[in-house]
Design a protein around this nucleic acid. Structure first.
Lengths: 78, 78
DNA sequence: CACCATTTGTTCGTATGTATG
DNA sequence: GCATACATACGAACAAATGGT
């Protein structure tokens, strides 16, 4: 284990940075919860929670049964 | 079980509405996680998660060991 | 100072429901 | 029907901070 595992907040920030950098472009599908959990060496729950944060911020849109996609709009939240 | 329990998102929205309505004023301390869990008939985890959402939105500020307080500023988030 | 109860904040694992293909 | 994937709830556990005794 790489010392301390990343928190869901850290993971959300990392993904957020990758979206800003263009690594993940609008319309792109993010890795699945299971894959994210693997990637960041955290549990499924923690990976899901990181994505939930991004969803709340309007950066990504979850589509049950299909995946999580980077939002097209730059933003807009309420 | 009272039909369907409220989701953390629903609870966050309810508390948010109570802040907007003035039921909870800036500086006020919200009920503790344990009390919120009791109030909304959900688990501790779910109550804590609802508050986490409000924290992320800048509506409240958590103070470990003391409580959660309604933010003074109307907002500002990044 | 030492305890101790309370409270925030988080992780994890398991389970369930729903949607998609 | 089935496998995959999102979305959420729950309970147990723990760390850290605070405040009172």
């Amino acid at each position: 284990m790489p010392a301390i595992p990343l928190s869901y907040s850290d993971i959300a920030e990392d993904i957020s940075a990758r979206i800003r950098s263009g690594e993940y472009s609008p319309g792109d599908k993010l890795p699945s919860y299971t894959q994210l959990a693997e990637l960041y060496s955290v549990s499924f729950s923690t990976a899901a929670r990181a994505v939930a944060l991004l969803r709340d911020r309007g950066l990504v849109i979850g589509a049950p049964g299909r995946g999580v996609f980077v939002a097209e709009q730059p933003q807009s939240q309420q």
